[in-house]
Write a protein that binds this DNA or RNA. Structure first.
Lengths: 157, 157
DNA sequence: ATATATGCAAACGGTTTGCATTCAA
DNA sequence: TTGAATGCAAACCGTTTGCATATAT
């Protein structure tokens, strides 16, 4: 999905709710869809401060992130390290995350069988599934390598 | 595992680290293994305040909870609602959680096939799995019922 | 014209921490 | 005796909010 379509979709979303397209919202939308990394509210705030364009306050960053999550433009991801991370949704399929406990790296994965088993668990218990959050914590390929290197050198972890 | 064994195990843990068995730690340990509910630091603090025994400050509650998690006596559970919940571990097998988005109820489940698929995902990606966190958010049996009732009565959700 | 957004700074809420005092070993 | 633990209150940190001002429609 390209920038222009996203923009249209955002405008429609705002109209539906009688909200206004401000230069701040415009700027945040653009910036957020420009990156494919996971980012925090603070990171986004700093990007906007450094790069040029209409100034955006911290409060507006938070308010707009909330709006974008509501509208299904962004998803938030709780890595359990205090701050929420965000990633854009449009053009991305659902996935879960691997988080490296050594370097913080995040990778995405999708495993249909896990998704299906989650539904089965819910059904079995009489619940109705709304969403889920699966995080695998481990060591990424390069941190595993580093650790093995250290072990060979006789350094205890 | 009965209270006395847990107590011994805790004393050994403290000795190993040259930490001391204080009346506060004793009281927290007992209280925590007395309940089978999930509880927050604040809930625990209030239990200790209402029931009688040696007084325990909020700071000590937090410090001791940390200690018990380190020692593998408790596990913490991030429901994503701001505060951490705790549950005791000894005598409990690993499980994941269902969280009701309407009433906050928590149920536990264990699904071996999901556990195994997580390992497979990691292996496939070259990661080494350390732990995981799976939360299913949905509506519990009784909230589903309530919601259906409302729908029949023509009340929109 | 007017309802909505913004920026600022203060508030929030769970948790952590510095420090003087108390206590287990 | 002395290193560790406690209680208190202040600090922390990401996030939210009240309010006066600015702005999109």
């Amino acid at each position: 999905m390209k920038q222009a379509e996203i923009r249209d979709s955002f405008e429609r979303f705002l109209q539906k709710r009688s909200l206004r397209l401000t230069s701040q919202r415009e700027r945040i939308l653009d910036r957020v869809f420009e990156t494919h990394e996971h980012f925090s509210a603070d990171t986004l705030y700093n990007w906007l401060k450094q790069e040029d364009g209409p100034s955006v306050s911290r409060a507006t960053v938070y308010r707009t992130l909330g709006l974008l999550v509501d509208g299904g433009f962004l998803e938030s991801l709780d890595t359990g390290q205090g701050e929420l991370l965000y990633e854009h949704v449009l053009g991305h399929q659902h996935h879960d995350h691997l988080v490296c406990v050594d370097c913080g790296k995040i990778e995405e994965f999708f495993e249909a069988k896990i998704e299906q088993l989650q539904e089965e668990v819910c059904t079995r218990k009489g619940w109705s599934l709304v969403s889920h959050n699966l995080r695998l914590f481990g060591r990424c390929r390069s941190c595993v390598r580093k650790k093995d290197g250290a072990r060979e050198a006789g350094i205890e972890s």
